[in-house]
Simulated scan of single mutants.
Amino acid sequence: MPTPSSTVYWSDLRTNPSLTILKKLDRLLRAAGMETLDLTDKYTAFKIHFGEPGNMAYIRPPYVAVVSALVRELGGKPFLTDANTLYSGRRHNAWDHLRSGFENGFSRDATGCDLIIADGLKGNDYVEMPVRGGIHCTTAKIGCAVAEADAVVSLNHFKGHELTGFGGALKNLGMGCASRAGKKFLHEVSHPVIDRNNCTGCGLCVKNCAHHAITLDAQRKAVIDHDLCTGCCQCVAVCQFSAARASEGSASRVCSERISEYTEAILNGKPHFHVNFVMNVSPNCDCWANNDAPVVADIGIFASLDPVALDQACVDAVNAAPAINGTALTDRNYGGTGEKFGHIHPDTDWSAGLDHAVRLGLGNRKYDLVKV
């Protein structure tokens, strides 16, 4: 029996005076099937990352306005949402999180919809949603605003990630919609390690650890107390000397599989649609107050009703693109062709989450790509 496939639609970024990038996005959404969703009178959660202030790789508000206009045209009631973070930063609680979103331009006037922090003031407002077919959990702790939404649209900046290899639709949903308790469960399998030969004792990891799990010993080498560590990998992101590393072995696989299970809980029984912006493809996630140089040139915007096929298509597009010299990719002696995310983050297994998502019935890794 042939393996099922899904359809992924994409648009490049070429424009002309009669066809702007925003018009191309609207055309892409319609071609990819957003108009087929029943959104009449449905509270429609737009899962997005508002951007940690200082990081400029986030999706720009005018793109959101296009999606919002179409959802309202279809009778939906859209709102922007994200859940609070586990690590330190300006999205650690709803008060700072909302201010960060407003600073980056996510106002009602700019986007056509309001901002609601999914898991409340301090990240404790969640619903335990059933996970069907899960091997790591039977319920997922999902922020109330997402759990109670009638439909879900994920708007995702596609990039690398320190723990899962890359971040796309599955990561933005499964990790991004989890409450703080949910995020702790997703991360707990990760136990970052310190390569003492590379550690310079700069103390940046100590300063940035929200859980006070890192100290410098008598030799001014970083030491992680894993009884306090939540596995958020902020130390990996801020280390400039490759001393802090994500756990080797199964941590990446298990975390990615748990993310897929959380995504299954979020999407099951709800109309959903997904858009990946393959622009500013930075080597690390968007959770920090800086973004490193993109490792490939901007490729375009991809959309699908299938989040698994969408993520796979974007991985393939990045792998097929020429590497940009002078980036984190070429710093690691990239050979010039082939797989990129595993090369940047060799301790990760980016395919594990996709494989598990297929087993959970979230979609297919096989896809047909249609240019719009």
Rank of each mutant, 00 (worst) to 15 (best):
R359M: 05
G123Q: 04
E73V: 05
V71P: 01
S154Q: 02
L155E: 01
S304T: 01
A45W: 01
P2T: 14
V372A: 08
D217P: 04
T327N: 03
H187V: 01
T330N: 05
K42Y: 03
V281I: 12
A309I: 04
W288T: 15
K47F: 04
D41P: 11
E103P: 04
Y58K: 11
T263D: 00
A32F: 02
L86M: 13
C287T: 09
S6A: 15
C255T: 15
R180T: 07
N55Q: 10
G120Y: 07
C113A: 14
L155R: 02
G134A: 07
T200V: 12
E103D: 14
S154V: 09
A45P: 07
R132I: 09
A145D: 02
P307F: 00
G363D: 06
G249N: 11
C229K: 03
C113V: 09
T164S: 15
L186M: 10
S18C: 06
T138C: 09
L354S: 11
S282K: 01
E188C: 12
C177W: 00
T327I: 06
P4E: 08
N280E: 14
C287S: 11
I214C: 09
Y58D: 08
A320I: 06
S5E: 15
N104D: 00
N208E: 14
A321S: 14
H345V: 04
D26G: 13
L19D: 14
K24I: 11
D316T: 04
V318K: 00
A289M: 13
V296H: 01
S304M: 01
D311P: 03
V370M: 10
L19P: 06
A83I: 00
M56R: 14
C144I: 13
Y334T: 00
L80V: 05
E148H: 14
Y63P: 01
A222T: 05
P322T: 06
M34H: 03
W10S: 05
R108N: 11
G342F: 00
D347M: 09
G112F: 04
G105Q: 05
E188G: 01
P78F: 00
I21A: 11
V275F: 04
I324Q: 14
A313H: 03
S154G: 15
D316P: 00
R27Y: 07
L369S: 05
R60F: 13
P61Y: 02
V278Q: 03
K47L: 05
L28G: 07
H92L: 15
M129E: 09
M279K: 06
S6H: 07
H356T: 05
E128G: 07
A265Q: 06
G165R: 00
D292K: 12
G33W: 02
N280G: 14
A57T: 08
E162D: 08
S11W: 01
I194A: 07
K122L: 15
K366S: 13
D331G: 05
D38T: 10
I266M: 12
I59D: 02
L362S: 06
K184F: 08
T138G: 15
A317H: 01
V71T: 13
T330C: 06
T3C: 08
L98S: 12
K23C: 06
K47S: 05
Q312I: 09
K141D: 10
R359S: 12
Y9L: 11
Q312E: 11
V223Y: 08
H274P: 14
P2Y: 13
N208C: 12
A293N: 09
H212A: 15
S179Y: 02
E339N: 08
R132A: 05
H157G: 10
A45N: 03
D38G: 12
V71N: 03
A69C: 09
N84D: 02
E261G: 10
A169H: 00
